[in-house]
Design a protein around this nucleic acid. Sequence first.
DNA 1: AACGCGGGGCG
DNA 2: CGCCCAGCGTT
Length: 344
Amino acid sequence: MTASNPLFADRLIAWQEQYGRHDLPWQVSDPYRIWLSEVMLQQTQVGTVIPYFLNFIARFPDVAALASASPDDVLAAWSGLGYYSRARNLHRAAQMLVNSHGGHFPQAPEALIELPGVGRSTAAAIAVFAFGARAAILDGNVKRVLARWAGIEGWPGEKRVENTLWQLAESLLPSSGIAGYTQGLMDLGSQVCTRTRPCCGACPVKEDCVACIAGRQSQLPAPKPRKTIPERHVVLLLIRDARGRIFLERRPPAGIWGGLWSLPEAQDTLSAASLCACRYGVNVDFDPPLPDVRHTFTHFHLAITPLPGAVNGAVVVTDSGTGWFDLVDIETLGLPAPVRRLLK
DNA sequence: AACGCGGGGCG
DNA sequence: CGCCCAGCGTT
């Protein structure tokens, strides 16, 4: 926050009143519906949840109805939503509520979290929407909003980062208007501060958003680190002419091997001939591919399939980005190491 | 084809 | 605590 901006929470509350969602079927006072919606929304988006929610409520209108239903009926109503342990936990929790809480929901997040299927964030959401508790939620949308706004580095799945986010989420809570604030945070994350292509122009907190100011929306929050680096595959074309020269192409200035001379690259062996005809205007007869060569970069493995081929007669090259080279001249060119190795 | 999603269960 | 899983939708 800067001195010239109203509080983060106040801007979010005002935004939610004007642009947020107010007509969702679980925006009611019934804790049962709020709980059900929060569990359904744990791994599933709003648009998918709505019909399941309406059907579920029609079949099991209250906690008692759910508690006394058969597991099969509950699972049937859940069928298609996925993560079926949610339905089993829901059923168990309904029975706990009937047997141990007189069929009523406890109000404190610390009590709600005891229900199976209710974690810290879901407990807070229920407590906020059903009972007006002053508690912080931290779901995927909120993590993204806060990580961007405050410029929090690191992957939010990492404990250290998550602790920081929880702390921030608590510190930003308003003293009043908690439900509108919490709904606003959710709505902002799902409608404006989206994972890809966020609509920062429509954001009520863009003025002091670290990611927006620095243009780092695509870098925050940091993605989950991959343990196995991805494997990429290219076909490199070893095209010779009648004089034994090799055909090279200068690579685009940005990206892998930027600006270096290299062998033409094809997606696969089958498209190589049409690519040569289309892009270079030469007809090439390709031989069977040579065995793959593997090369490891920092961020991915590259499997190279060398594909030898021949054109007949001399070919005049007009494009300055391509050319025919004698093998002896290639020594003096700037070539990527694996390509140089391949040519030997 | 890989990723993201909240919570639970495991070692 | 870190690690993995669940199932569907999105990218």
